[in-house]
Design a protein around this nucleic acid. Structure first.
Length: 268
DNA sequence: ATGGTAGGACGCCTA
């Protein structure tokens, strides 16, 4: 059976509700994980999603900042809303969903951006980002009652040289510093996670999922970064059918600075 | 070398 899951940092779910609706109607993923919803739980537009077939919604939001939500066409069960670094930030939500013969555990993450200065001694936001990654080590692909796991979200790190427009020019820019890229790759591998985007698209090929708002000519200059990720446990990776990065969404009216990533599976 | 844009909530933080 086909099964698909998408991730998208939406940068305000209320402002961009029409864009999310368009995406769901055109691409119909079984599950969509949103980050940066910037929406208190009691104001989340659940009804709008139910009206277009996404009847199952779990949210972990707060006023003003952060916030994640997971929408699905089929039943999902809340597994956990985990708090990281005892900050009270809404940056994680996990659910289980049935897919073929499996129960999948789906983690939805919004990792702290980390500020501008890549020095934990003088920048508390960068310290927070590193501490958050340290806590993420306990989120393992083989953990839990589910028989397979998926981890998606805005991880705010571009780990490979081809995940940024210029490796050399971004080595000291937060999101691509060696301490971040090495930590992320280490926690991914040790946690038993497979980078599905890179399983489908070879590491020689550049992939970006984010382009700054601060460039009018984002498409021509193409100074992007791959900050959004789709990981899975080993047992799911052989069933991956495709990965699609919806670059065109960056050109939609009043866009998010991130675009959706869709992973499709063929499951038994 | 710097400043450039965007969102939430309404002076300023975060990305």
């Amino acid at each position: 059976m086909p099964f698909s899951i998408a991730t998208w940092n939406i940068n305000s779910v209320r402002l961009r509700l029409p864009l999310v609706e368009r995406f769901l109607l055109e691409h119909a993923p079984d599950v969509l994980c949103l980050q940066e919803t910037k929406c208190p739980n009691d104001q989340f537009p659940t009804k709008a999603f139910r009206a277009i077939g996404y009847e199952h919604v779990e949210i972990n939001g707060q006023k003003g900042y952060h916030g994640v939500a997971t929408l699905a066409r089929r039943p999902i069960r809340l597994a956990e809303k985990r708090e990281f670094c005892a900050m009270g930030d809404t940056r994680h939500l996990s659910v289980t969903v049935n897919a073929g013969s499996r129960d999948l555990l789906v983690h939805n993450f919004y990792v702290p951006a980390g500020g501008d200065e890549p020095d934990p001694a003088i920048n508390p936001k960068f310290r927070h980002k590193l501490d958050f990654l340290d806590e993420m080590r306990s989120v393992r692909a083989d953990q839990g009652e589910a028989s397979a796991s998926v981890l998606v979200g805005d991880l705010n790190i571009a780990p490979l040289e081809t995940d940024v427009w210029s490796h050399k020019q971004l080595l000291k820019v937060v999101s691509h510093t060696p301490v971040e890229t090495e930590t992320l790759e280490d926690l991914r591998v040790r946690g038993g996670w497979v980078d599905l985007m890179r399983r489908h698209i070879p590491p020689e090929e550049h992939i970006y999922t984010w382009w700054s708002y601060r460039a009018k000519d984002w498409d021509d200059s193409d100074r992007g970064r791959r900050l959004d990720h789709v990981w899975s446990s080993d047992n799911l990776a052989p069933h991956l059918a495709s990965v699609e990065v919806l670059r065109e969404a960056r050109g939609w009216d009043r866009p998010s600075d991130h675009v959706p990533v869709i992973a499709r599976f063929d499951l038994d």
